[in-house]
């Protein structure tokens, strides 16, 4: 009798152990754990932390990185990389602002911002698929070109951008920032895209082994165009939100954003070698980055430390993952 009970218990313990093991094997889990730890620590360290206002603020900060990172995730899963997103944020914001100002039309302003993002994405895609320029180099070029254009268009001086743009950047739906709502909707949409659609399958296959994917009849080039276009478009949306929040489109907007975005993607468990990655992971990654930023502000720690810590967290999260995965090569 007692023997049976112990046997049953060991079986149960084993299955729990197994579940834990599979969970721990995912990088999302290590990121979620770090996230939780930071939340617990912060709730003790600052009474302001758990106020609704602060939490929504974190959400809003995370939302732009997360939105742009959604596109970047698809790019990286397809074995590419888009270094131009930060500059495209700036270019889209000033294009939208200038179009809105010159035409006086809010709709055209929004369209101009998104259109500039999409155009930059397509430009990257053409450099990659038609001219066979490695995406790292191609988007590095675009990074510079887009920033330069933004500066030329404005003469280096911020342009005011309000109206509908401020709704994107600072509006609220039932107290929740519009950008946060968008982030959730887009995350659901992209989760669906990645897991349930043919296009999603093409993206994973292209990144996993482009030659095999091509020989299997997958349109690798079209898939690459799709992911870069989406990444550009979302960078455009990011620019709109950031500029709207400030009521002004600075040509410097989004400088250095590509690092946060790529960090969020990598934290979320997407492999730089392509073929692997998940949407929920990226959202967690973006939340963690924003949470850390907030923690440093609340704790009054120098922003220089923030830069160091962000780097450490990435190395830590990816390191845990690497150790668990073992030497797979």
């Amino acid at each position: 009798m007692t023997q049976e009970v112990t046997a049953a218990m060991t079986v149960e313990a084993q299955s729990i152990k197994k579940l834990l093991k599979t969970l721990l094997a995912r990088r999302e889990t290590s990121v979620a754990i770090i996230l939780l730890l930071v939340v617990i620590l912060m709730s003790f360290a600052s009474e302001y932390f758990f106020t609704q206002r602060n939490l929504l603020n974190i959400g809003r900060q995370a939302s732009v990185v997360a939105i742009v990172a959604l596109g970047q995730t698809l790019v990286i899963i397809a074995r590419g990389i888009d270094l131009s997103v930060g500059s495209v944020i700036g270019l889209s914001a000033v294009t939208g602002a200038i179009v809105a100002q010159t035409t006086g039309s809010q709709v055209l302003g929004i369209g101009g911002a998104l259109g500039a993002g999409l155009a930059a994405g397509l430009f990257n895609a053409v450099l990659y698929t038609r001219f066979h320029i490695n995406p790292f180099i191609a988007t590095l070029g675009t990074l510079s070109i887009a920033r330069g254009l933004a500066l030329l268009m404005t003469g280096g001086i911020p342009v005011s951008f309000n109206g509908w743009a401020s709704w994107f950047g600072a509006g609220r739906i039932a107290d929740v920032p519009v950008s946060l709502v968008m982030m959730f909707l887009l995350a659901v949409l992209f989760f669906f895209l990645a897991t349930r659609t043919r296009a999603g399958r093409n993206i994973y296959a292209t990144g996993d082994n482009p030659t095999a994917a091509r020989l299997a009849g997958i349109d690798v080039d079209r898939t690459r165009v799709l992911v870069f276009a989406v990444s550009g478009l979302l960078a455009g949306l990011g620019g709109l939100i950031l500029a709207g929040n400030l009521n002004s489109a600075s040509p410097d907007l989004g400088r250095g954003y590509e690092l946060d975005v790529i960090a969020a993607v990598i934290l979320g468990g997407t492999a730089l070698s392509g073929g692997r990655g998940s949407i929920p992971g990226v959202i967690l990654g973006a939340l963690l980055m924003a949470l850390l930023g907030n923690a440093f502000v609340l704790l009054g720690i120098s922003s220089h430390w923030q830069v160091v810590t962000k780097g450490l967290v990435i190395v830590l999260a990816v390191g845990i993952d690497g150790i668990q995965r073992g030497r797979e090569d």
């Binding site: 994973y204 996993d208 082994n209 030659t211 095999a212 073929g275 692997r276």
Partner: peptide
């Protein structure tokens, strides 16, 4: 290995 399989799939 090179042209056939999708190794992470």
């Amino acid at each position: 290995k090179v042209r056939g399989i999708l190794p992470s799939h």
